[in-house]
């Protein structure tokens, strides 16, 4: 029987992936496999960041949850798949139980286009939460902590709405015309949000 690791619940260790792998080298194989399998299965390039370990003493199970600061844009493929799921599941009326409008095809296309044109070299970002909005739009939300988030909302009418929150009484919001590049204000907001990660 494998011996449980002596880690507290919700242990958070800010290591690089390489450091973390060395840490686990002499641990029971079940943990090593669990640790190694998830990030590689997800094909994530995670050279910086941290993992949150949900550890159950005496159990042979361990859950690894990404709380990564990504340093590239490898998440775009996953984001596009996530977007597809949102569209598939929410392109019907009342997807939320409150008579929401279906997610529009135009919003889906605009969101897809926006994700594909995110600059890959000038900014390091985690993957956003992609979610439907009750007016048929789609939101990309980068959530850091309470009071710290950046939301980009796409409505399918070539208008991008954004909301940046950077702590108490530090926020801005507005709209931008959707063109062929990510608006500067959005890149600025995202950089500001993640600059002190």
């Amino acid at each position: 029987m494998d011996t449980a690791l002596d880690l507290p619940n919700d242990y958070l260790f800010p290591l690089t992936s390489t450091d973390a792998e060395f840490y686990y080298l002499d641990k029971p194989s079940v943990y090593l496999n669990a640790f190694l399998s998830k990030p590689r299965h997800d094909k994530i390039n995670h050279t910086t960041g941290s993992y949150k370990i949900n550890h159950t003493t005496g159990s042979d199970k361990i859950n690894l949850e990404r709380t990564i600061v990504w340093n590239d844009i490898d998440w775009i493929d996953f984001a596009l798949k996530n977007l597809d799921e949102v569209y598939d599941e929410c392109s019907v009326e009342n997807w939320d139980g409150y008579n929401a409008q279906p997610v529009s095809q135009d919003a889906y296309f605009e969101a897809s286009k926006l994700l594909k044109i995110f600059p890959t070299s000038s900014i390091s970002l985690p993957m956003p939460d992609i979610g439907p909005e009750p007016d048929g739009g789609i939101g990309l939300e980068w959530y850091k902590d309470k009071g710290f988030s950046f939301l980009v909302s796409i409505n399918g009418k070539n208008i991008i709405t954004y909301v940046g929150r950077f702590g108490k009484n530090k926020h801005f919001y507005g709209t931008e015309k959707y063109k062929d590049s990510v608006p500067e204000i959005i890149l600025y907001g995202l950089k500001r949000l993640f600059s002190n990660s």
Partner: peptide
């Protein structure tokens, strides 16, 4: 606010998402 769709919250972070509160026709039930 009752929630009927998992896209309205993030269970791992124990948080409600903004879209759970967005109004429909000017109201949030």
């Amino acid at each position: 606010r009752y929630i009927f769709d998992i896209k309205h919250y993030a269970a791992t972070k124990r948080r409600i998402k903004y879209n759970a509160f967005l109004p429909i026709r000017g109201e949030t039930s």
